[in-house]
Design a protein around this nucleic acid. Sequence first.
DNA 1: ATAGGGTTAG
Length: 648
Amino acid sequence: MISSGMKSIYANSVYCIRKLLPWRCRLFGSTASCEQRDFAASSSSSLLDDFSRYCYQRDLPRAMETMVEMHARGNWADSVTYSELVKCCLSRGAVEEGRLVYRHLCFGRYSPKTFLLNVLLNMFVRFGLQGEAEELFDKMPERNVVSWTTLIATYANTARSDRALELMTLMLREGVEPNGHTYSAVLKACGGLSKLRELHCSALKVGLESDVFVRSALIDNYSKLGEMNDALRVFGEMATGDLIVWNSIIGGFAQNDEAIAALNLYKSLKRFGFKVNQSTLTSVLRACTSLTLLELGRQVHVHILKYDQDLILNNALLDMYCKSGDSEDANQVFSGMAEKDVISWSTMIAGLAQNGFSHEALKLFDQMKASGTKPNYISMVGVLFACSHAGLMREGMLHFRSMKKLFGVEPGREHYGCIIDLLGRAGKLHEAVKMIEEMKCDPDAVTWRTLLSACRVHRNTDLAIHAAKQVLRLDPEDAGTYTILSNIYASIQRWEDVTEVRKSMRVGGVLKEPGCSWIEVNKKIHAFIVGDNSHPEKDAINGQVNRLSLRLRELGYLPDTNFVLQDLEGEQSEDSLCYHSEKLAMAYGLMNLPREKTVMIRKNLRICVDCHVFAKLLSKLEHRKIVIRDPIRYHHFADGTCSCGDYW
DNA sequence: ATAGGGTTAG
């Protein structure tokens, strides 16, 4: 008879158990309840003492030698000593020795207890020997919550979430009650919101509401699904403070681009007198990054100087400086890093490329390869972005065509996007279309928007209409593309189509996102929304825009009223162009920032041609550096030119 | 005595 505790977890369990039954009888049969000491012959006590000493001293070679001797004499030590030996194997990565310990314990006249089998199970898992772990698990006469949790955790960590959840079900079916360890492991594997809520409920039922590990796992999962209300509720129910739970919620807001909430929580955390650590600061930096709060980020930089060798923190710092358009400080952090991983290199390459330093980015890519760091999918997005940004057709194609062979990177949407951008910039629109047809993955709205952008610059109306329709098919909420499409139809007098586009926009309830620009002055964010006059200094700002506009006209600035193929922030008239949010932000920056500071602006929509000309001329007139970061790329204006080369 | 949490790049 096979007892329920021996039931195999595998589909072909009957076969599995039959095959193993003789082994099982020999090992776990009649002697199953024997204690280790019973086997120790009195004459061997000094051998066992030696063994125990070697194990606790972490002298692996001598311990193994003694173990072999013991095996020959039929002696066994106690479980705790063996667990020390396994720890020793693990810390040295001694796989073969570990296997030998396993054979010594499981293939002889000895019956290891569940505790010891769990230790061995964990050892196999740690060594990445999944097959051997499963085999052992399958053969265990009794599996407790630790055995199940150990295996569930490996599946959860190797992103085999279906298997982890399945094991949890089997565990419950066998009547083994899960604990906090189990939930924090299985939560890592939970895919959707409904499964998460289900696990959340059952964890509460088992009485785990105060387990901080479960709490942080729940917060983390709700955050990943963007359910910040749920995450906040779980956080708020915490009676005692726990730094990691705080880190989870701060990280959650930072990842969901709710930077203000993240920063406020960070402030309360400090007010409560908590000592924060690297993880907290990494999330705080990420929050600063998403708001382009360069000055606040610099302040955080001062606080993290004591962690100057922390790789992840340095990577976040790098990204903060890159995204804030400060490639000099990014370079400084980068060159000061003792250890660099693929993320450090990728961040820096993409950062340089986005800031218009394509050649520096490509030089860095050469250094990366020379350093022995293997580029991955994301690294190649940065490299191709650098090529497209500088119009380096030959080089871009070369990297694109060779990356699979050289680095095993299969080209994906983002890579194709760069190539389409590259071809589009060169005016090779039909080759760009061919590239879309060649894609193995389905093109998405971003892909078609890239083509649409190329059509806009090269004034190809027919193709633009096609691309715009594709964008709207894939993303029917994209207000900007409706506007472009309607403008195109208007320009070729297809009034019925104009009406049609406007109508479908109305029917679909698509609202145009108002243009918004942000600028940091005195560590505070000032937001300028088109049509919003609530800024206390609005009169002074409007006056400044008008004055600048007049002075720029002397330099040849003419408001660009050719709106065709453009998605503008506001109404389409010369008058309203003056009040595009980035112009207001530029004016405000010039009024309030010291002369040596770069005017750094972030905006939610892409910059229009008129504002682009305005910014270029302004940088020359005022001898100021201006950076405008739109959702796709950054425009560095200096001395009358822009790093984007007037293509975006 | 064996199993558990948070942080970085497109």
